[in-house]
Design a protein around this nucleic acid. Structure first.
Lengths: 118, 118
DNA sequence: CACACACATTGACAATCATCGATATAGCCG
DNA sequence: CGGCTATATCGATGATTGTCAATGTGTGTG
């Protein structure tokens, strides 16, 4: 395939391909960066965690408030929360024995921006 | 755990939990539904596919245009495209031998809505 | 100090997934 | 009809992931 002059606009260098529109499409690095955020959102239990934290009194919740509604073990919930923190979606603040999780301000909006600017 | 009366507002039924705010947080079904969309977005190559399709001439691209910029085999690209179609993000139209993929109108906006209404 | 509690971390395991090679389907052209 | 091309599907495989039990860490309390 792609001998010389076919009728399809087959790119020669496989980098900037075939779109004379706006952006030159996502490069591999940017795609991996954005995918890591969506990976954090790609689990129903993590979505529920975000939802519960967002709807909690004062906008924050501790782990002990989160294990029961999800019907999951405490280590599993801790694991999910860590992924959400690493993705920049949740903020963790330790007060005494408890760890309070809250939405990072603007994180949701920033994430929708990742979609809109595809 | 959850013997009888501790000091935390432990819900008795693990359904509506502990938020006297707006929504009663996501139920398991809705969470799974939304997660399936984000699962489709949780791969860098699929994000690049969406980006290339969106930026392509006429808003559509066929498989042969997509394998080279991603540096992936044709079966793999077909597989990713299927996932994006199943998620309701891409539309597939067969014309002759070619299959043309295009963004489903409003799909991106609907997806951002899944985030905003958490 | 000793104990209890809230949370994090580790190790293991089953399930899901991304990728590839091989093959199947189907439209076009000689 | 017979080959060629574009795409889809299948089977296998290595990698990632969600979950749990067990354990570690740090903080408050008797």
């Amino acid at each position: 395939m792609n001998s010389a002059e076919t009728l399809e606009p087959t790119a020669v260098d496989a980098e900037v391909c075939c779109e004379p529109s706006g952006q030159p499409s996502l490069d591999d690095y940017e795609a991996q960066l954005r995918a890591s955020v969506f990976k954090a959102l790609a689990d129903p239990n993590r979505l529920r965690l975000l939802s519960i934290v967002k709807g909690s009194e004062g906008g924050e919740a501790c782990v002990c408030d989160l294990t029961q509604p999800l019907n999951l073990g405490q280590p599993t919930v801790s694991h999910h929360l860590r992924i959400l923190v690493d993705a920049g979606l949740l903020h963790r603040e330790k007060r005494g024995t408890w760890a309070y999780y809250s939405l990072v301000p603007g994180a949701i909006e920033r994430t929708t921006g990742l979609l809109a600017s595809l």
